[in-house]
């Protein structure tokens, strides 16, 4: 395979691989590095590619190994990653046993603000809040809102039931709501 052909793969598959990596890894920089490593490894062993699978499948299989390596080697990071995942997964007590709002999490009215979608500071806080979600919740948010996939497809891709999907989407919104309230709306109020 020529270098030009291979570079065409970079054009064709970078976006897909990055989206894939971002489902497993919440840190954007790390995900980009792993995609880069994937192409590099693929390039070095491009003679092994026999064209039996599609290039996409082949590249994803390399990426999967890179992600697994990343979690294996960065043991320290892994612990951090898991514990932050647990913190959010650990059902912050939004509701009491009867399913009523816990007073600490009562949604309070947000002050209306114009053009938040263009406000860089707000976008930063929102990204930060998204990156604090557990892996599963972040995956649901990415597929549902960023990629605008159907619920049914998301369930298949993440191997979850539809009730689990609604629960994850709901909980993700609860976390994001609380995170934005704390880190944006309350701060704005001063």
């Amino acid at each position: 395979m020529s270098e030009i052909q291979f570079k065409q793969w970079v054009d064709d598959y970078t976006e897909y691989l990055l989206a894939w990596a971002l489902m497993k890894i919440s840190d954007r920089g790390t995900a980009e590095d792993l995609v880069q490593d994937t192409f590099l490894a693929a390039y070095r062993s491009k003679d092994n590619f026999k064209g039996e699978a599609s290039p996409k499948t082949w590249l994803v299989s390399i990426l999967k190994n890179k992600i697994a390596d990343h979690y294996r080697s960065a043991q320290r990071k892994k612990v951090q990653y898991e514990s932050s995942g647990q913190m959010t997964e650990n059902e912050a007590a939004f509701f009491d046993k009867k399913g009523h709002w816990s007073p600490a999490f009562y949604p309070t009215e947000w002050e209306e603000q114009d053009k938040l979608e263009e406000n860089e500071g707000f976008q930063k806080v929102l990204s930060l809040c998204i990156s604090g979600l557990s892996t599963k919740m972040a995956a649901v948010i990415r597929l549902k809102f960023f990629e605008q996939q159907d619920g049914e497809d998301i369930c298949k891709e993440l191997e979850i039931s539809s009730s689990n999907y609604w629960q994850l989407a709901h909980r993700a919104k609860l976390h994001l709501r609380a995170c934005l309230e704390k880190n944006w709306f309350k701060v704005q109020k001063g």
């Binding site: 949604p107 009215e109 938040l116 979608e117 929102l126 809102f145 960023f146 919104k173 994001l176 709501r177």
Partner: peptide, 18 residues
């Protein structure tokens, strides 16, 4: 009711991050 309003807003913001 407040939550519903905010949930819709969140959806809009998230989609704009698409």
């Amino acid at each position: 009711r407040t939550f519903e309003k905010q949930s819709k807003l969140l959806g809009e913001w998230l989609e704009q991050q698409s």
